[in-house]
Amino acid sequence: MARAGGRYSQVVAWLKILLPLSALALMSTMFLVARQTGSEAEIPFAEQLREAGRADEQVGSPYFAGTTERGDALTFEATRARPVSGGRIAADELSARIGLTDGGTVDFRAPNAIFTDGSAMATLSGGVEIDSSTGYRVRTERLNAAIDRIDLESDGEVRADGPAGTLTAGKMRVLPSGPGDEVQMIFTEGVEMVYEPQNSGVSDE
């Protein structure tokens, strides 16, 4: 049947072109406006600080938890966190725990810590204490700690006591190493250990 002239069929003819085009346009914008999610590691407490907004420029008892590629748990908490110059975040009374996949734990704490944006390391200072579930208590002045994997490294001499006795060493590092990639606490740069045999029962304090 011949095409009926008149306005109605003209409108339909135009719609047949315009509608698919607008559908196409709609479809393509959908991908463009998808929210860009940040890719590099989020430094601890940054999110809570952003949420706290500009009001008091600090956050009380912030908390950060993450897991390493190996599946170990890493948690950081502090009494207070505040942004400082150079896009860094300062935390007071930081205490952190590494929960190993096999159940062992390494806790470390320090009066102050600095997290640097873009670098996955925190610097702890002011007298750092590290306690491992293998019974070693380690003291050092400063410690660099990774926040996205297991890697602690003392910045200077350490003193430690544990089942094998009391020791000093030039450096201590905690990281997966050796066969089986098991996490090791490695003392280097001159290890000096003193062990008091307890067979006499009397330990001369």
Binding site: G104, T134, P163, A164, S177, M185, F187, V191, Y195, P197
Partner: peptide, 24 residues
Amino acid sequence: STDAPVEVSADELRVNQSDGTAVY
């Protein structure tokens, strides 16, 4: 005297955090 303290010095001491073994 076997009660005297035992001193150990070494380049490295490695303590395995899974089973606690210590190796100088």
